[in-house]
Design a protein around this nucleic acid. Sequence first.
DNA 1: ACAAAAGTGTTCTTGATACACCCATGG
DNA 2: CCATGGGTGTATCAAGAACACTTTTGT
Lengths: 250, 250
Amino acid sequence: MTAPVGASNGNAPEGYDKYAYEPFAVTVDLAVFTVRAGTLQVLLVERGQEPYAGRWALPGGFVLPDESAEEAAWRELAEETGVTDVPGLHLEQLRTYSEPGRDPRMRVVTVAFAALFPDAPVPHGGGDAAQAQWLRFNAIGPLAFDHDRILADAHERVGAKLEYTCLATSFCPPEFTLGELQQVYETVWGTPLDRPNFRRKVLATPGFVEQVPGAARLTGGRGKPAALYRAGGATALHPPLLRPTTEGRP
Amino acid sequence: MTAPVGASNGNAPEGYDKYAYEPFAVTVDLAVFTVRAGTLQVLLVERGQEPYAGRWALPGGFVLPDESAEEAAWRELAEETGVTDVPGLHLEQLRTYSEPGRDPRMRVVTVAFAALFPDAPVPHGGGDAAQAQWLRFNAIGPLAFDHDRILADAHERVGAKLEYTCLATSFCPPEFTLGELQQVYETVWGTPLDRPNFRRKVLATPGFVEQVPGAARLTGGRGKPAALYRAGGATALHPPLLRPTTEGRP
DNA sequence: ACAAAAGTGTTCTTGATACACCCATGG
DNA sequence: CCATGGGTGTATCAAGAACACTTTTGT
């Protein structure tokens, strides 16, 4: 029941006073991932005040009175990174965290989002983006609030999404090699993949990637130049590309 | 950033007045499904007041100051159905809907949940459960607020979850036949399945179901009595049980 | 005897896995 | 010429799809 009052079930609070209750603050928290140099990185900000002063935290902020959580998330992402209109940037709602004690100051309900950032563009620093920084996912100590859990949930979600969607291209620049795409999978999953099979799988999925006609690029300085690809129009991946040795994940 | 104020990014509102903003109401909405007599049914309540007076709506209500959204959802479910401690009942967070105009009276952010109810126990009526009723999913007209969308999202989620979890047993009574389990899949997905293959698939997944030793039951009055099964301990389904002709779902 | 529902077996095809192997480029 | 990374081919195996068939009950 959405209605705050006068709901047809008799359990909603009586009266219709907007201010009758201790107010809830509604915020968004963002788990922004990127893959750079073969490592998984997360965008974090350092807290200046108590509680958790000096700790790292997920970027985020209030949902303003006239915007949805999605709009707030996009706005915050732009403010933290200083980047607007990143092509191929993916942002999706993760879940909502509402435990009463999660912020010691007041009741804060946060809608968490997971975002995939392509490599390269403007990591941090410039402009009004205060001190947002990319940190290695594996080297992240305890975060403020319940952000460790949010980050873990986001990581699991991103890993799962790579299996059955074409989302991995959101981690890549507009043009990329199949080796780079494979590195995205290997970095997020933390497991090596068989190159020939990965290649077949990707190319056999219509609309996953499309080749840039004549282009080629040298990847590591050495070796044969690799063909370049762009993201195709497909979003789903059928059949899925499963993580190796996947037993009993809920 | 969870902090309402003094956050390390400069974008959070200044000051630390809990009442400085138009307050957000936080509610939960429940999409409760069951499979009865080969049809998919949804628990709905009829609204008594404006807006949307006389329309059907998802059951739900406020998140109280000292409970999480999950606790509120369990409480509302118990209140609407009059049932507590239903074994095998499954409830999970779906997503949060926060568009500013979704309730015309005030700003209401709702955390939506999807629940699977086993067949049979206490449909409605008794006790304080006002007028919650089971309606056929296929015969549901336009609902109040944005509940059509929430219900559609919940249905899609439930359908997807049947593919890769053992969740279907949550639709069944404690003891059930494989034919009944198959009917759950067919009802939710709306597609017929091959019985021999379904059977093999279910039995080949360790921990999905376990047979009740000597028991058997006559299903439709005629035919061979079917063996009875209980839900096993497993939660995940590897490899998944995919919907037929599944092309291009995001 | 027949219908209806449970349960078993078999074939065919697809997709995943694990390799071996060739190609192009820089040092 | 060799190390490095890109790209191709192939044999093997497990899983899913389709369907024929048997068994047990009620009418």
